[in-house]
Simulated assay, not measured.
Amino acid sequence: MQVATTTTNRDPDVETVRFAPSPNGLLHLGHARSALLNWGFAKDRGGRFLLRIEDIDTTRARPEFEQAILEDLDWLGIAWPEPPRRQSDHFGTYREALAELGKLGLIYPAFMSRAEAAGHIRDAEAGGRIWPRDPDGAPHYPETDRNLGEPERQRRIERGDPHTWRIDMGAALNGLPANLTWRETGSGPAGETGRITADPAAWGDVVLARRDVPSSYHLAVTVDDALQDITTVIRGHDLFAATSVHRLLQTLLGLPEPTYLHHDLVRDETGRKLSKSDGDVSLASLRQKGLGPEDIARLAGLN
């Protein structure tokens, strides 16, 4: 896949990092940790810090949350040299990447609803089958749709049956080097560092495009990192295992391989990672209580 950069005259030797929040809630201390780590990394190396708004989930993304992100980052003293890249502005680019994978015969339409897939898995387990699960604990998608013939797939698509597009993981791995790896300069949850062996098969046939959006997180983030010339991806331990899928997509699409630096997460007193959906304390509320940027850095474990 040939990707066109969104800006010009970038020096390939300049370290480029990105902070990529989703505008579906207010930023919390975990986001502050990641943003400040990226910002400090770029500043220390004379590099570039880019902001990306990951808003492919158009049902949950809201403009007021995007505005809050900009205000929080500005308050923290973080700046970016160009307008943020909004994923919702680049659906055509993701369609092109998906089409490339389609030409290689590596994707298929998946018609089962969540309830149907869950029922299929439940029946299989009741019959004694040990069903594989991905690193996040979710069951792999059943093989039923993968095994449909092309005429049946086309008939159902033309009929308007709802479907997502999934990667055929077995076909994607066929012929690839057995030692697919990435360079980790941070660490994994268990302290893994150095050259890490990727295991995309552990994820099964992951979704690459959804019913209403021509991409999923995995595809969009991989294409965006290439388009923005990201040299080092700095993000939390919760995405360490997902790097296997991203390295696979980079290899299949002929995209450059960045270095990865995964960092510890900010957790609450019970050990649970902070989450927007759980209503954890936001940066905006901490600011209203009188805390300053230095306090946020301390609470985020950075000094």
Rank of each mutant, 00 (worst) to 15 (best):
D11K: 06
V14W: 09
V17I: 06
F19A: 01
A20F: 02
G30T: 04
R33C: 12
L37C: 10
N38K: 02
N38W: 00
W39E: 05
D44M: 13
D44I: 14
L51N: 05
R52K: 00
I53S: 07
I56Y: 02
I56F: 00
R60S: 11
R62T: 13
E64D: 11
F65G: 07
A68C: 03
L70I: 11
D72P: 06
A79V: 14
F91R: 12
A97V: 12
A99G: 14
E100M: 07
L104Q: 15
P109D: 01
A110F: 15
M112D: 04
R114M: 09
R114Y: 13
E116V: 04
A118N: 14
A118W: 00
A118Q: 12
R122I: 05
G127E: 10
I130T: 14
I130N: 07
Y141W: 10
R146G: 00
E150W: 04
E150N: 08
P151Q: 10
P151C: 05
E152Y: 09
Q154I: 11
W165D: 03
T181V: 14
R183Q: 15
A190K: 15
T193A: 12
R195K: 08
I196C: 04
I196A: 08
A198T: 05
D199S: 07
V206I: 15
L208Y: 04
L208N: 00
H218F: 12
L219C: 02
A220D: 01
V221F: 06
V221R: 05
D224M: 02
D224L: 00
T231R: 00
V233K: 13
I234Q: 01
L239R: 08
H246L: 08
L252N: 00
P256F: 13
T259C: 08
Y260T: 04
L261V: 07
L265A: 05
D268G: 10
E269I: 10
G271D: 06
G271F: 11
K273Q: 15
K273F: 09
L274Q: 01
L274R: 12
G279K: 06
S282N: 05
G292I: 03
I296R: 02
A297W: 02
A300P: 12
